[in-house]
Design a protein around this nucleic acid. Structure first.
Length: 702
RNA sequence: GGGUUCGUAGCUCAGCUGGUUAGAGCGUCUCGUUUACACCGAGAAGGUCAGAGGUUCGAGUCCUCUCGAACCCACCA
């Protein structure tokens, strides 16, 4: 080992000795942990640091216990998020998608990805993550690419994939359809407009979509309008007079506004459903850039809010606008870019997931997956129970391109699927590939399998990997992606390999600021892990993070509160270093050729140590890292240092064997949490193994 | 509207399946620089565990309600 004990040398020493690598041929029992791949859009944040520190602690603990451990690392291409980050970056360089074109853009995007990856990779090593880097995977690598293709092809062959017009949440800024789960809601103060439609008056928050109305609707039980149902009236519109029918649909809330609504199937989810039930035509008023279409006459080309403002006077003039009221409601915005999303009709690809979700519910109800906290079982089942078809296409460039090829450019433009071929590569000259890419989660959902080489075409090493390490013993994630990711992994694992993806699913809490807000770039309330590491060192930072690693419990933190814990554990590290100095560096050899004599204090500390070993082992097995940390802390500082070591000062030589024994055991117990310091101090022993990483976890008598 | 979680010392929080005088860190106060450590040691103050009721021999821990905080899901025409 290198004589200099700085963290970097220690890390290189571990890595070059191959301690991080899992062995497919090992006879030892296996323990596998799957790292949730961080998005390659920036540096790792505090949540990642906590997550990965937890993974590493468990991996190190299991190695010491004698398991053949696989901690598999990887990163995610994170479609929308990466693309918007990258587009912002090139915009600062006065470039754009249009200027670069798809091929050049992708080339530059990969360069950017490599840059970001460097910082992520550096932070991982800095944190001491003992992952098997030889198996690192990126979601756009060849392996996942084949897995994604296999998935698409299978769904296609089974008739589970379809393309069709569908009302989607459209983000005009990112220029793509997004899923409900990618939305946020913001409370807005707007107006409710009361408009005269023939004999009826109705309330709407969106008068600008008036051009797309194809009916009026009332609740079937609403006596006030009973006589109007089924009749047709002539309506005054801004584009002349128009005939419109009154229909009855139970989706209408009689208590809202006047109890009458206008039905705009092209731009509202409820109206879309109503329209389907009553065979109403769909008229597109708002385009994908958030601007009004030609149908809006002189308002065409205006943005939604401009048009709304502009048309008011004409509505008033013509006597259509009866009155307005203040109206507070929630507006859906894009979680990534915060722009108001526009429900509109778009050609998208979908997967029918109903039956797959039902299977997943069975899997969850069979209780083979241990959820921490356990109430997430119920939460996931409820979501799966009310699942809708999965929109898997995104109008992006960054991601797995949809493996559908059209025989001609014309077919591609019109999206005519009839003669299309499913293929990873071009089927031949003249074939044109679908423009869209697949939803990021379409590849992330396969992560537990694709990282192990599934699906293997050649029955090579990959098969044995899957047999050896799947299902994963441990997975951890933030609760916010429980549906997007966790539910999908359960569904897809069941569907493709008929098994659970992981045995234990740990949902850690979210680290928030003192007001309880999420950390985000826009709020500027983030705290970088590097800040803590610079101040208190890696080991202390890890310890501080473990105190927050409680399933389902959010932690409210500020620089001050984190500094407090960081400082505390820095001090703890110093304490331990001094303990080792006293025991080993300042060792006092026995003056006489005598066997050391044990006394009651020695027995007591050994008993206390055994008790601590028992508790720490139990806490690690049950994944209560915060309790394990507390136990060791209490033992080392207050029992070992304050009491026992003080008591040995009069009988140093007699106590020496006990001092050394307890210290060595403590270092092993602490190694999963403070890997660097424990290795450094372990190297002081004369009799030792090559590294603390290949020590044995103390056996507990139960 | 449906669901989940939380409300414990000045602050940030632990407290597993209910069991003796409720814990930690930081902060505050007193004392102490004896050769592991002042990034230290010895000690102290500080809590009717949000409130009310219930189950129990016994509740911070279980149940009900009230008040307060946060988050998730759905809807928002």
């Amino acid at each position: 080992m290198n004589s200099k004990f700085d963290d970097k040398n220690i890390y290189n020493f571990w890595e070059s000795n191959g301690y991080f690598n899992a062995d497919v041929k090992s006879q030892k029992p296996t323990y596998s942990l799957l790292m949730p791949p961080p998005n390659l859009t920036g540096e790792l944040h505090l949540g990642h640091a906590m997550q990965h520190s937890v993974l590493d602690a468990i991996a190190r603990f299991k190695r010491l216990q004698g398991f053949n451990v696989l901690l598999l690392p990887g990163v995610d291409h994170a479609g929308i998020q990466f693309e918007s980050t990258f587009d912002k970056k090139i915009a600062r360089e006065k470039l754009s998608k249009q200027k670069l074109g798809r091929d050049k853009w992708l080339e530059e995007a990969w360069k950017f990805k490599d840059e970001v990856y460097k910082s992520v990779s550096h932070t991982w090593r800095f944190l001491g993550i003992s992952a098997d880097w030889s198996r690192e995977v990126f979601t756009l690598d060849e392996g996942p690419r084949r897995a994604v293709y296999f998935q698409f092809k299978t769904f296609w062959d089974k008739g589970l994939i379809y393309k069709g017009p569908y009302i989607v949440q459209w983000c005009p800024k990112d220029n793509t359809a997004i899923e409900n789960v990618e939305l946020e809601y913001e409370e807005r103060k707007e107006k409710l407009y009361f408009l005269k439609y023939g004999p009826l008056t109705l309330a709407t928050a969106r008068p600008e979509t008036k051009f797309g109305d194809t009916a009026m609707a009332v609740n079937p039980n609403d006596k006030r309008y009973k006589d109007y149902v089924g009749r047709e009236f002539e309506i005054e519109t801004l584009a002349g007079k128009k005939k419109m029918q009154v229909i009855a649909d139970s989706a209408v809330d009689p208590k809202f506004g006047t109890g009458v609504i206008k039905v705009t199937p092209g731009h509202d989810f409820t109206d879309y459903e109503i329209g389907k039930r009553h065979n109403l035509p769909i008229v597109t008023v708002v385009d994908k850039h958030g601007k009004l279409t030609e149908i809006a006459g002189k308002y065409a080309g205006m943005k939604v809010l401009e048009a709304r403002e502009a048309m008011l006077s004409e509505l008033k003039e013509k006597g259509i606008l009866v009155k307005t009221e203040d109206y507070v409601h929630n507006v859906a915005v894009c979680e990534r870019c915060k722009s108001v999303v526009e429900p509109l009709i778009s050609e998208e690809w979908f997967v029918k997931v109903g039956d797959i979700a039902k299977e997943a519910i069975h899997v969850i109800n069979a209780d083979n997956i241990k959820f921490l906290p356990k109430n997430y079982k119920k939460i996931l089942v409820e979501w799966l129970d009310s699942i809708h078809d999965w929109c898997i296409s995104r109008s992006l460039w960054w991601g797995h391109r949809i493996p559908v090829w059209y025989p001609s450019a014309q077919d591609a433009r019109s999206g005519k699927v009839a003669n299309a071929k499913i293929s990873l590569e071009s089927p031949g000259k003249g074939w044109v590939q679908d423009e869209q890419v697949l939803d990021t989660w379409f590849s992330s959902g396969l992560w537990p399998m694709s990282t192990l080489g599934w699906p293997s075409g050649d029955k090579g090493a990959f098969d044995s990997d899957l047999a050896k390490f799947f299902p994963w013993d441990f997975e951890i994630t933030a609760p916010e992606i429980k549906y997007l990711w966790i539910a999908r992994m359960i569904m897809l694992s069941k569907y493709f390999v008929d098994d659970i993806p992981f045995k234990t699913m740990f949902f850690h809490g979210m680290l928030r600021d003192l007001e309880g807000r999420k950390f985000s770039k826009s709020l500027g309330n983030g705290i970088e892990p590097q800040y803590l590491i610079d101040n208190w060192g890696v080991d202390a930072t890890r310890m501080a993070l473990y105190t927050y690693a409680i399933p389902g419990r959010d932690g409210r933190v500020s620089r001050a509160t984190l500094d407090e814990r960081g400082k505390n554990f820095r001090n703890f590290g110093t304490k331990l270093r001094n303990v080792a100095r006293y025991i080993i560096d300042l060792k006092q050899p026995a003056t006489r050729d005598q066997r050391p004599v044990e006394n009651g204090d020695d027995k007591k500390i050994i008993e206390d140590l055994e008790e601590t070993v028992k508790k720490v082992t139990k806490n690690l097995e049950s994944l209560e890292l915060h309790l394990a940390v507390e136990e060791i802390y209490e033992f080392v500082w207050h029992k070992f240092a304050d009491k026992y070591i003080e008591s040995t000062k009069q009988r140093r030589a007699d106590a020496q064997p006990t001092l050394e024994h307890v210290l060595k055991q403590v270092l092993i117990l602490l190694h999963p949490f403070m890997p660097f310091l424990t290795e450094e101090l372990y190297q002081k022993f004369e009799v030792k193994r090559e590294s603390i990483m290949i020590e044995d976890w103390p056996i507990t008598k139960i």
